[in-house]
């Protein structure tokens, strides 16, 4: 297992380099001018100087190499400095956003907490609700509970977040006035009252997103449980005199969780994608929204860095999902 993991980690390096190259080339070839946002009153020579200042004068491969060095060496060095208070990265140029002229990673770090709070929490809530629903739906297949669960899952799959989000806003913010419709990211939680306010503003985006996760994971859990409930070893467990709860929650669940855990692990990078639409609807300034505005402003370093971060997360979580599968299922040993 260890050799497998190490081998995969080694393999991921050229994979990520290749992905970085593809992202870079795509953005290079895409039309768009970072200077387009600059007011028309600025004369062309000044624009040219601005362009050079952003590093656009250099050839493509130099820029790519510089970005790689910045991403893989300077940024971690900076983080090291930040944590340990050293000065290794003093004076070294970091990846600068063209929109804000400030380091990309600083902005990302600012935005991540919002995304994690809303989207991350929605994922956790979605999974926690989905698992018991899936288990019980399978155990009592075709019962009223199962039919209701199927119906809710269908809604979760087919109703897009921009519809359900706006619908919730109309009902709860406009008509009933119970919940705020705009997410206040400057809100600081330091006591019970402010925690309640935070909770109130998180409920709607979290529920909108959790619905989708719940739909997917509960169907998956139900299918996995149904596969296992009719297996012979379940009959053996009952013949041993074990109670129904042990038979279902220990024997069957342990087998059924294996594929479900891997699906859950593969869905985690999606959290960092930031649920772009939902962040727009509820005006949460998280990473998804950051990516959209960067694309619209042709802010190449920002788009490049963000996309690359997503790629790393996907590669890492793919590896985690594979390793988890090997850990949970004793029949699978990769070496």
């Amino acid at each position: 297992m260890l050799t497998f993991t190490i081998r995969r980690l080694f393999l991921s390096v050229p994979t990520l380099l290749f992905i970085g190259l593809v992202i870079f080339l795509l953005l290079e070839l895409a039309p768009g001018d970072p200077m387009a946002q600059v007011p028309l009153t600025v004369p062309p020579e000044v624009k040219e100087k601005m362009r050079l200042a952003l590093g656009l004068g250099e050839p493509g491969h130099i820029r790519f190499m510089k970005w790689l060095v910045q991403f893989f060496w300077i940024e971690p060095l900076n983080l090291f400095d930040h944590i340990f208070g050293t000065g290794f990265a003093e004076g070294k140029l970091r990846v600068i956003s063209w929109q804000t002229r400030s380091p990309v990673m600083d902005i990302v770090m600012q935005r991540i907490p919002q995304t994690l709070w809303v989207v991350g929490l929605a994922y956790v809530v979605g999974v926690l609700i989905a698992l018991p629903i899936g288990i019980y739906s399978a155990y009592r297949q075709y019962s009223v509970f199962d039919q209701a669960g199927t119906f809710v899952a269908m809604i979760g799959y087919s109703v897009p977040p921009f519809f359900s989000g706006v619908l919730l806003i109309v009902i709860f913010s406009v008509k009933l006035g119970w919940l705020p419709s705009i997410y206040d990211t400057t809100h600081v939680v330091n006591d019970w009252a402010s925690f309640k306010v935070q909770l109130m503003q998180m409920i709607m985006p979290v529920m909108v997103l959790a619905l989708q996760t719940t739909a997917q994971i509960s169907r998956f859990m139900r299918a996995s449980m149904l596969d296992n409930l009719n297996q012979d070893y379940v009959r053996t467990a009952r013949a041993k005199g074990m109670t129904e709860s042990v038979v279902v929650m220990v024997h069957v669940l342990r087998n059924s969780m294996i594929p479900v855990v891997t699906v859950i692990a593969l869905g985690v990078p999606g959290i960092f994608g930031g649920a772009i639409i939902t962040e727009q609807v509820f005006k949460v300034n998280g990473i998804g929204q950051l990516l959209i505005t960067a694309i619209q402003a042709n802010d190449l370093p920002m788009v490049q860095t963000l996309t690359f971060i997503f790629a790393i997360l996907i590669v890492v979580f793919n590896l985690i999902a594979d390793v988890l599968y090997g850990v949970l299922d004793p029949r699978i040993r990769y070496d």
């Binding site: 297996q231 012979d232 070893y233 009959r235 053996t236 467990a237 009952r238 013949a239 041993k240 005199g241 074990m242 024997h251 342990r254 087998n255 294996i258 949970l328 299922d329 004793p330 029949r331």
Partner: peptide, 30 residues
């Protein structure tokens, strides 16, 4: 009574044991 006073052996040994638990666990359970 099942498992304690009446023991049962089933037909297909390839699928009658739970694949994710070791044999010790499955014997120790009853």
């Amino acid at each position: 009574i099942r498992g304690k006073r009446i023991g049962f052996v089933f037909q297909d040994p390839m699928t009658s044991l739970n694949p994710v638990f070791n044999v010790g666990f499955q014997i120790c359970e009853p």
